[in-house]
Every structure is written in C-alpha cells, then in structure tokens.
C-alpha cells in the first residue's frame, strides 16, 4: 500500500439549515477497497456527490492524488447559517464541474442506474472514452482521428471481454438484465481510465446470487486494473467480504472507522446501524 489517493478534510455540506454531512474526514490509500456505510439518510451519497463535484461543499477540502480539487468556506448567507466546525480554516474556493474531476481520474456509478438508454452496450463504453480523446471536433468530423478511434474501439472490446459483456455488445443498454446493467455501468466508469472508482450502492436491488457475482467482480477489478475502490453499500455480506476498511456515517457524522472486524464489534455502529440478532 502506498500513499493516500483521496483525502477528505473537514467537509461539511449544509443545505439551508440542514447539515447533511458534518465535518467528514476520510482517507483512501492506493489499492484499497474502502466502504462507506450507514443508515438511510446518513449522508453517504451526499458525501459522494461532494467528492465528485456534483455538490460544492459548504466548508472543507477534498484532495485527490495530493492536489486540492475541491475547497470551500461558508460564504454569503451561509456565514450566519453555518453550524459546522472549522469555519475559518479554508480561504480558497475551488469548485470544478464533475467532468473535470472525472478527467483527473475519478469515476463513479450511480445509485439508480444511469446508462445512456438507447445506446448499445458497446457505445455506452465507447462514449465514456470520449473524455480521453485528444482530437478536436473538426478533425474528428473529418475522420482524421481514425487511428485513435480504432484504438478506442479495440480497448472497448477488450474491456467488454474482461467484464464479460462482449457477447451482448450490440444490445441496447436497457435490454440487459439488471445485474448486467450494473456491470455495464462499472465498465463504463472504468473506460474513463480512473485511478479511483466510486460505486454508489452497486448491489442495490440485486438478489443474493447477483450480489455474490458482484463481490467477485469488484475483487477482480481490483486485481486486474489495480484499482482503488470506494463504495457505498447496504449489503453487509458484500461490504464485510471485500472491504479493507470501513467508514460509518450516521446523521452526517462519522461515528466509526476501521477494519471489518472492528466495525462489526463496535457498539456505536451496532446501535446506529447494524443492530443485533433478535434471539441474541
């Protein structure tokens, strides 16, 4: 394990008077699989959205690969409303759009599948490679980039073979079964050439067998692509199985973090989220 790849420092996300994420600190090291768990409404997806640039945090800083990518401090009306801590610590405002963060090497999937519906499986992955093309649009229209285009198509074919979707490459994305759509969404994220993969509830709505397949798949991605994975998930089997470390959120606050064993035995986490078996 080498240095940290993603660093979230004192991030607070406040919508009006509601604090969705409160003073979140987390760190992800290269090659790790880290899970973020917590009850519904704990602010997990909000934290994801802050990291990927969908929301601008109210306060705090996010660094990726040692460089600050997102930073903000309470401004304007928020100055009075702000309920969080570390208010005066940050002075810069840095709010890139999600596409710029993706270009830096962070790709994500969505809680409810967001594939490009009428496009084929192949095109879904191919479009995701667009952000890595170097040709301008005139050259691309005049087909001066056929070398790059061919290279991309070869890479898509290779990627689809790796994830086991090559035999359905010409089907429209929505005609796939649910589990495969999830898999395609992950393949699409991988096509943007990320260093860090963020998965928002990849197993949501899956049956146990599909979940097992997904667990194996995430492990395979880590092995094959050397990918660092950060995921939100409610399936505890999956989380405990593959995570190196786990962060637990409750009401926007980080209540625990540690290895799966530590989390399973942490009383606060059991109270807030995991619960105990009824006959215990």
């Amino acid at each position: 394990m080498s240095g940290s790849i993603l660093n979230v420092e004192n991030v607070t996300m406040q919508f009006g008077g509601v604090v969705a994420v409160d003073n979140l600190n987390l760190e992800i090291n290269e090659g790790e699989i880290v899970a973020l768990i917590g009850p519904n409404g704990a602010g997990k997806t909000t934290a994801f959205n802050v990291v990927t640039g969908v929301y601008q945090p109210t306060n705090g800083r996010v660094s990726f690969l040692g460089e600050t990518i997102v930073e903000n401090h309470p401004q304007g009306k928020m100055k009075k409303l702000y309920k969080g801590e570390h208010a005066g610590e940050y002075s810069h405002v840095l709010a890139p759009t999600p596409d710029r963060i993706t270009k830096l090497g962070m790709a994500r999937t969505f809680q409810n599948i967001r594939l490009w519906k009428s496009q084929s499986v192949f095109d879904n992955v191919l479009i995701a490679m667009h952000c890595r093309t170097h040709t301008n649009f005139l050259a691309a229209s005049l087909r001066l980039n056929h070398k790059e285009e061919q290279e991309q198509r070869d890479r898509v074919a290779e990627l689809l073979q790796t994830v086991g979707l090559y035999d359905v490459k010409d089907e429209p994305a929505t005609s796939l079964p649910y589990g495969k759509q999830r898999r395609l969404e992950i393949a699409r994220a991988l096509a943007t050439d990320p260093k860090l993969l963020l998965l928002d509830e990849p197993a949501a709505g899956m049956n146990p067998q599909e979940t097992n397949e997904l667990t194996a798949f995430i492990g395979q991605i880590r092995k094959d692509f050397g990918m660092t994975v950060f995921l939100i998930e409610h399936h505890m089997d999956l989380v405990m199985d593959i995570s190196d470390r786990i962060y637990v959120l409750d009401f926007g606050k980080l209540i625990a973090h540690g290895t799966p064993e530590e989390i399973q035995n942490n009383n606060r986490v059991i109270d807030a989220y995991l619960g105990v078996a009824e006959d215990a």
Binding site: V54, F110, I127, T192
Partner: peptide
Amino acid sequence: TAAEAMGI
C-alpha cells in the same frame, strides 16, 4: 448527469 460524470 451521467454524461457529465463520465467526463463530458
């Protein structure tokens, strides 16, 4: 949203 998240 998906397009933007995929770097477009």
